[in-house]
């Protein structure tokens, strides 16, 4: 699960990294940096779809992200062994 500020919300952390760390080095090919939060869930589920739905559900119910300001992307990473 990747949680980021909405596209048109400011991201002070990403902006500062882009400006103060990268631009200052004279690197101009990097146009912007966005910061976010990354959570990895190990889910017991029969199907990928099922795992995705479960994580989506708890993300919404437990306010793991705030839809007022965040966008949340959930992807399947693969299967555990």
């Amino acid at each position: 699960m990747i949680i980021e500020n909405k596209k048109l919300a400011r991201d002070p952390e990403g902006e500062t990294i882009a400006k103060e760390l990268i631009e200052r080095r004279g690197i101009s090919t990097i146009k912007s940096v966005r910061s976010g939060k990354y959570l990895r869930f190990l889910v017991e589920a029969g199907k990928e779809e099922e795992a995705l739905r479960l994580v989506e559900k708890i993300a919404n119910e437990l306010r793991i992200f705030n839809p007022v300001v965040h966008i949340c992307n959930i992807r399947i990473m693969g299967e555990s062994r």
Partner: peptide, 14 residues
């Protein structure tokens, strides 16, 4: 320094 963004101290270290 630099809002502690990325990691506290890293940007000032540059």
């Amino acid at each position: 320094s630099y809002g502690d963004y990325l990691r506290a101290g890293i940007i000032a270290a540059h």
